[in-house]
Design a protein around this nucleic acid. Structure first.
Length: 595
RNA sequence: GGGGACGUGGCGCAAUUGGUUAGCGCACCGGACUGUCGAUCCGGAAGUUGCGGGUUCGAACCCCGUCGUCCUCGCCA
C-alpha cells in the first residue's frame, strides 16, 4: 500500500464500500461525541468523514489534536444509511471507519480559523497566506487562474503563436512608470531595470522575423496600488503580430477572450465583434476611457442649451471654455431629498463646484435651477435626454477634462447606488482612435497622450499636414464591465515617421536617437509593419472569479505599500552586500515601529 | 504626497455616545456525551482597547501627535 494514500479525500463513493483504503489530509473539523469521534479530513480535492471509535489506540490522541494537523488514516469504506448520509459533500454517501492512524505533522493553533466564514483582516491573511490559501474561495481562485492561463496558452498556440521568454534583467526605460532597479556588481554605478513590459523585446522579435509572438509575461512597475492594481508585478498575455491591421488584432483578441470567458464563467458574454467606441465619444458619453456598459444611461453634451441661458453659473463658465454634461436617469423622481443632497456633496468632493439637476414630475419640471431656464431651453433639454415623467437629469459644468471625470464618476455612483448595473453579463468594448497628442495641462505644450511608439493614423502625411491635436493613433484598449483589460497598438516601425512624431512633441532627433537607439537601430535593417496588445491576466481572472480585489486572484500578493508581509520583503541587506554593489545609503533607514 | 474609513483577547464583532469589574460568537483549555456533519451541554483561561501625550473626579469613547491596514486622488508611456 502507498505510504500516504490510495485515494484522495474526494474519491470515495458508494461503490467503494467494503474496500480498505488509505487517506491523507488536514484535520478540518472534529465532532467529538465521547463515545465516537468524527473527523472531516480535507485535501486539495475535497473532504471525507473519518469515524474513530474509542477502542482505537489513537482515539485519545485525536480527540486532543489541533485542527489543521496532517494525518494519514487506514480504514474500511462504509456506506452511510439514509439518516446519516450527507448530501452536501460529494463523498457524503460513505465514510471511512479508521483502523490505523499516523499523524504526519501537528499544527499549532492557527491565527485564522479555516472552517469558518468570517471575514479576516487582510493583514493577517497576507502574513499567513499559506493558511489563507487553504480556504476554499481563495484556493479555487488560484486554481481558476492556473486553468485560465493553461487555456490562454492553448488558444494562442492554436492560432499559430509561438511562446517566447524575454529578459527579466534589462535596462531602465525613459518613458512610462517608475522602474524597479537592480544594481550591477560588475559595473559600478550602473543598474539593470525589471521590465515594465516586454514591449521592446517583442517588437525586436517581429524584426527578427518570428511573425507571431506571445508570452504570459511578468511586468514590473513601481506604482501605487489600487483595488485592480497590485503593486510590484502583474502578468499580461503579451502578444505581437507582423503584417497585420488593427482589425486582425481585434479578431485574435475577441476569439481568445470570448473563448476564455465563456469557458470559465456562466455569465453572458458579448459576442464578437465587440462595439468600437472612439475615445472622444467614450469621454463624452461615459466620462471615462474604460466605460461600464452595464449602466443603462449615457451622458450627452448640452453646452449649447446653457450658453445663452439665464443660469449665469453655467453661462459664465461656458464663456471661459467650460462645457455642460447631462446625465439623464429614468424614473428616480421619488428619491428623497437627502439622496440628491448627498449626490451634490459627492460631486463637490470630486472637485465640482456643485451638481445641478432637474426633475420631470408629471407635466412640470422641478429642481433648483428650473427658475433660471426658459421654456424653450427646458424643452430642448427634455428632447436631448428623451425625458419623461419621473426622469431626472443631472448637470456638471466644468472644463472638458474635469467635466468628463466628474460626470463619469457620478454616472458610476448612480449606477451602483441605485442598483441599475446590469447583472450576470460581461459587456465588452474596444476603445479606439486615441489621440496621438494632447496639451500638457501645465505647460500647454503638445505632448504624447499615450504611447509614443504607436503609428499615427495617416502616417507621415498626417504628421505633416494635420494639426497635432487632431491626429489619431492606431491605439486601442479592451474594456470589460468598466475594467481596462488591455492596451495595444499598431506600432510605428519607420524611423523617419518616429523622428517626425517625436519632433511634434518637442524632442530633437539627437535625443530620440540617444534614448531609443536599440529600437531605432533594429528598424534600420528592415522592420515589418507590426502590432499587438497585452490583456492583463490578473484582471481577467479577477472578473471571472467575481472578485472585488485583485489580491484575491494572486497567490502571494504584496500589500498596498508594496510589502510582502509573509516573507518580509523588502528587507535590509548587509553592509557587505551593499559594498559589493558599490552602494552607499543616503540616510539610515527608520527603526521599525513599536506598535 | 493629499483625502476618506478603520484599529478592542488568536479571529470576527459589541459596549445605551464620558460612568460599576470592557461584553458576545467562533477558536483555545478541562469535563460530559456512541451518529454528528458549523455537533450539543457544563466549566475555564485569555485584553496595557495599535502606540505616546493631553482634557476630566472618571476615557475604548473627546483633543493632539504617531504607527498600521484598506479605499481613493496624484501616478499607471
Amino acid at each position: 500500500m502507498h505510504p500516504y494514500r490510495t485515494h484522495t479525500c474526494n474519491d470515495l463513493r458508494a461503490e467503494h464500500a467494503g474496500q480498505t483504503v488509505k487517506l491523507s489530509g488536514w484535520i478540518f473539523r472534529k465532532r467529538d461525541h465521547g463515545g465516537i469521534l468524527f473527523i472531516d479530513l480535507r485535501d486539495h480535492y475535497g473532504q471525507t468523514q473519518v469515524v474513530v471509535h474509542p477502542s482505537r489506540s489513537f482515539f485519545e490522541e485525536l480527540t486532543h489534536i489541533k485542527l489543521e494537523s496532517v494525518a494519514t488514516f487506514v480504514g474500511r469504506v462504509t456506506l452511510r444509511d439514509a439518516a446519516t448520509a450527507n448530501p452536501e459533500i460529494p463523498s457524503g454517501a460513505v465514510e471511512m471507519v479508521a483502523d490505523a492512524c499516523e499523524v504526519q505533522s501537528v499544527s499549532e493553533q492557527t491565527p485564522l480559523y479555516l472552517a469558518g466564514e468570517e471575514d479576516i483582516a487582510e493583514e493577517v491573511r497576507l502574513k499567513y497566506r499559506f493558511l489563507d490559501l487553504r480556504r476554499a474561495s481563495l484556493h479555487q481562485n488560484i486554481l481558476l487562474r492556473s486553468q485560465v492561463i493553461a487555456h490562454l496558452r492553448r488558444q494562442m498556440t492554436a492560432q499559430g503563436f509561438n511562446e517566447f521568454q524575454t529578459p527579466i534583467l534589462t535596462c531602465s526605460s525613459p518613458e512610462g512608470a517608475r522602474d524597479y532597479l537592480v544594481p550591477s556588481r560588475v559595473h559600478p554605478g550602473k543598474f539593470y531595470a525589471l521590465p515594465q513590459a516586454p514591449q521592446l523585446f517583442k517588437q525586436l522579435l517581429m524584426v527578427a522575423g518570428f511573425d507571431r509572438y506571445f508570452q504570459i509575461a511578468p511586468c514590473f512597475r513601481d506604482e501605487d496600488a489600487r483595488a485592480d492594481r497590485s503593486p510590484g508585478e502583474f502578468y499580461q498575455l503579451d502578444m505581437e503580430m507582423s503584417f497585420v491591421t488593427q482589425d486582425e488584432v481585434f479578431r485574435v483578441v475577441e476569439e481568445v477572450l470570448y473563448s476564455t470567458f465563456t469557458t470559465f464563467s456562466k455569465l453572458a458574454v458579448d459576442a464578437a465583434p465587440w462595439r468600437r467606441i472612439p475615445y472622444r465619444e467614450a469621454m463624452l458619453k461615459y466620462g471615462s476611457d474604460k466605460p461600464d456598459l452595464r449602466i443603462p444611461f449615457e451622458m450627452c453634451d448640452v453646452t449649447g442649451i446653457f450658453r445663452d441661458s439665464g443660469f449665469n453659473a453655467f453661462a459664465g463658465a461656458i464663456k471661459t471654455g467650460a462645457v455642460v454634461r447631462a446625465i439623464p436617469v429614468k424614473g428616480i423622481k421619488n428619491q428623497p431629498r437627502s439622496f440628491f443632497d448627498k449626490l451634490v456633496e459627492h460631486a463637490k468632493s470630486l472637485g465640482s463646484k456643485g451638481l445641478a439637476y432637474l426633475i420631470w414630475d408629471g407635466d412640470t419640471i422641478k429642481g433648483p435651477i428650473q427658475k433660471f431656464l426658459k421654456p424653450a431651453e427646458l424643452s430642448a433639454l427634455a428632447g436631448t435626454g428623451s425625458m419623461q415623467d419621473g426622469d431626472v437629469m443631472f448637470f456638471v459644468c466644468d472644463e472638458p477634462g474635469k467635466a468628463a471625470r466628474i460626470s463619469g464618476d457620478i454616472r458610476g455612483k448612480l449606477g451602483r447606488d441605485l442598483g441599475l448595473i446590469e447583472k450576470g453579463v460581461f459587456r465588452f468594448c474596444w476603445i479606439v482612435d486615441f489621440p496621438m497628442y494632447e496639451l500638457d495641462p501645465e505647460t500647454s505644450a503638445v505632448a504624447f497622450s499615450h504611447n509614443p511608439f504607436s503609428m499615427p493614423q495617416g502616417g507621415m502625411e498626417a504628421l505633416e499636414k494635420t494639426p497635432p491635436l487632431d491626429i489619431l493613433a492606431y491605439q486601442y484598449d479592451v474594456v470589460c464591465n468598466g475594467v481596462e483589460l488591455s492596451s495595444g497598438a499598431i506600432r510605428n516601425h519607420r524611423p523617419d515617421i518616429m523622428f517626425k512624431a517625436f519632433a511634434l512633441a518637442g524632442y530633437p532627433q539627437e535625443e530620440v536617437e540617444a534614448k531609443f537607439s536599440g529600437l531605432l537601430n533594429a528598424f534600420r535593417y528592415g522592420a515589418p509593419p507590426h502590432g499587438g496588445i497585452a490583456p492583463g491576466v490578473d484582471r481577467i481572472v479577477m472578473l471571472l472569479a467575481g472578485a472585488e480585489n485583485i489580491r484575491e486572484v494572486i497567490a502571494f500578493p504584496m500589500n498596498q505599500k508594496a510589502q510582502d508581509l509573509m516573507m518580509g520583503a523588502p528587507s535590509s541587506v548587509t553592509e557587505k552586500q551593499l559594498r559589493e554593489l558599490h552602494i552607499q545609503l543616503r540616510s539610515q533607514p527608520k527603526p521599525p515601529p513599536q506598535a
